[in-house]
């Protein structure tokens, strides 16, 4: 799902490809329109990514991880996402399966722990917690859910010399707020290609807790872009997690059976 995040948060198109978009966005867009446009441009029906992960503790010591993600989206746009660790040996085959649902319904999420050979359904609180010792929360592994947030355009600001829209995202209502550990987020979306350049995460006490920066943006086909490098930093904890995409496949079919509780237990190739 990490890779899938790039689809919406770290990707974008250079030019609008449809007249309707040109007319819609001729004036300054709203925050929601920016996120909707980003999703429209970069949504794909399936994607498999291999990633390497480097987790730095507060003393700067690094731990290495390798993982694979499979994302498949249905006609409504809801995704089923499987994430599996490939190394090191002590967490190989640990997996996380997420079934995203539209507004009004909580996502389903299961964790597979091979040592216990058990697949466990996990609850909402878990989504706010740190994922496997990284600087990512479980909810960071889920795609941006436009139906559960309100978006406000705050203006324009450059990130690394690239002009960006600056958008504030807030949980939509009390129920949505309870599902997230973030009171609000600030997103910088590059105007030139709709790629998210940076996200600042704030907790419910409005304290800045985390920053994600997206780099090494590559062009795929047409308007499709992906960031091949993401860094999550927690300034208060002084920890950092780097993610590098080492391979990506947008064409090979992903079996529905793989994205089930039983599929979660399938050994990696």
């Amino acid at each position: 799902m990490i890779a899938d995040r790039y689809v919406w948060r770290a990707c974008g198109s250079g030019l609008c490809s449809a007249l309707v978009c040109l007319s819609t966005l001729a004036a300054e867009p709203t925050g929601r329109e920016i996120l909707e446009r980003q999703k429209q441009v970069h949504d794909v029906s399936r994607e498999t990514s291999h990633l390497s992960m480097r987790i730095y503790d507060r003393k700067g010591r690094a731990r290495e991880r390798a993982l694979v993600t499979h994302v498949k989206r249905d006609e409504q746009g809801d995704a089923r996402v499987l994430l599996k660790f490939l190394s090191p040996a002590d967490i190989r085959e640990v997996g996380l399966l997420t079934w995203e649902h539209g507004a009004g319904r909580k996502d389903d999420q299961w964790l597979y722990l091979p040592a216990a050979r058990a697949v466990k359904r996990i609850a909402g609180a878990t989504r706010k917690g740190a994922f496997m010792g990284t600087d990512l929360a479980y909810e960071d592994l889920q795609a941006e859910d436009l139906s559960r947030h309100s978006y406000t355009l705050l203006g324009s600001e450059a990130v690394d010399g690239v002009d960006c829209w600056k958008v504030e995202a807030r949980p939509g209502d009390k129920a949505d707020r309870a599902l997230t550990g973030y009171g609000h987020r600030l997103l910088w979306v590059r105007k030139q290609d709709w790629v998210t350049a940076r996200i600042d995460f704030f907790n419910h006490s409005r304290k800045h807790v985390k920053t994600a920066t997206f780099g090494d943006v590559v062009a795929l086909s047409g308007d499709l872009r992906r960031a091949n490098r993401v860094v999550y930093e927690q300034p208060l904890r002084k920890t950092r997690t780097e993610l590098i995409v080492t391979a990506r496949d947008l064409e090979s079919p992903i079996s529905d059976a793989l994205l089930t509780r039983q599929g979660l237990m399938r050994p990696s190739r």
């Binding site: 794909v44 490939l86 086909s221 995409v245 080492t246 496949d249 947008l250 090979s252 190739r269």
Partner: peptide, 22 residues
């Protein structure tokens, strides 16, 4: 649509994987 991007090939698939636990 291109099949993949930078570092495109899904390297490692199919190769035997070895690990040990003592």
């Amino acid at each position: 649509m291109a099949a993949c991007c930078a570092g495109v090939t899904l390297a490692g698939a199919g190769e035997p994987h070895f690990s040990s636990e003592l």
